[in-house]
Amino acid sequence: MNETAHCRTELVAVVLGLDTAVTKEPQLRVLTTGEGNGLPSGPLQAGQASLQRSLRHWVENLTGFRLGYTEQLYTFADAADDFGNRAVRISYMALARSSPEMSSWQSVYRYFPWEDRRSDMTHASLIPLVSYMKSWMSGNGKRLSRCSVAFGLDGHEWNDELVLDRYELLWEAGLLHEAGVCETTLFEDSLGHAMKHDHRRILATALSRIRAKIRYTPAVFDFLPQHFTLLQLQQAMETLAGRRMHKQNFRRLVQHQSLVEETDLFDPSGQGRPARLYRFCEASSQNCYLAGAKLPLPPLA
């Protein structure tokens, strides 16, 4: 008897944007569906010659946002079910400029609270979690080494870009709902909001990708309005990286590379003397380097 396996192909969009309308600091947000349990997704239609163009058209119709930079992330495949069916998901990351309507989007750090290391509260919650992980991996040298690199232990530094590595280790440890097992509820408040299928893994991949891109490319400017202050630029970098920047070093890096140019405009919304507004200087974008201004993080162990 011949058995035929079926494969369903979907497009999944990770649309990221900075919400500047809610708090003093911008919030990194992602477009979700339902009650924040999934990413926008839909079946791949026959006859679509360009997946990227199709995705842009689909998301812009869905949200009313005109997308900026877009790139393919990865292709994910579920394991076959009892009937031999599989779901293949082609994921894309797209960047959107801030909008007043973005307040209805979900915070990315709702799904990865351990990744926002701007807060002392995150550090405090990570310490027992990392201690548990080290205990769980004791006796397994390969996993322990992965844990040390991913979480910045045993002489390693916390690497912002290893979002997916940390997510997969927590999944393997059975701490995330998506793993299908729950080893302990001790850290439930520290492990974020679950998503359907493998959507949180796709979102982790996107956060890893954008954190890598802001180090050596001018991707951060895709999140900002045409005119911005240097403080707004720094806060955007801090929000994306999930950690604080050294103010003087950051401004020195930006200005020495001629990444921005002054305008004759000022921001009247702040307290005290209005801050000068700048704009991105695209002619200097090929020499972008913004990785050297991060403040050190306190050790987790």
Rank of each mutant, 00 (worst) to 15 (best):
R211I: 07
E157H: 14
W105A: 07
F223P: 01
Q72P: 03
K196W: 06
Q45E: 13
I214R: 07
K213P: 00
D165H: 14
L290V: 11
S98Q: 11
F65A: 02
P100N: 04
H123Y: 12
L11S: 03
K134N: 07
R66M: 08
A206Q: 04
H199W: 02
M195L: 01
L169W: 11
T23E: 15
G141L: 11
L297F: 09
D222W: 08
D222P: 00
A301S: 13
H197C: 02
A275P: 00
C147W: 12
S98V: 02
D82K: 12
K134I: 03
K196Y: 04
H177N: 09
H123N: 03
S131G: 09
T239M: 14
V149R: 15
L277G: 09
H156K: 10
H6E: 12
R56G: 05
T263R: 09
Y289D: 12
A236P: 06
Y289W: 08
Y167H: 12
R117Y: 08
P225E: 15
D19R: 03
P274Y: 03
D160E: 15
Q52S: 01
L175A: 11
A5I: 08
S148E: 14
V130L: 04
H6W: 06
Q248P: 00
L164D: 13
L230P: 08
S285V: 03
S91N: 03
L16N: 01
K24F: 11
I127Y: 02
E168K: 15
E282G: 15
G34M: 01
S125C: 04
A87V: 10
D82H: 10
F266P: 00
E25Y: 12
S107D: 15
G36T: 10
L265N: 05
V108Q: 07
Q226R: 14
E157G: 08
H57R: 09
Y132A: 07
R211C: 10
R209D: 07
L277F: 08
L186P: 00
A301T: 13
F223A: 02
G174F: 06
S41V: 03
L67Q: 03
G242L: 07
D189N: 09
A204V: 05
E183D: 09
R89S: 06
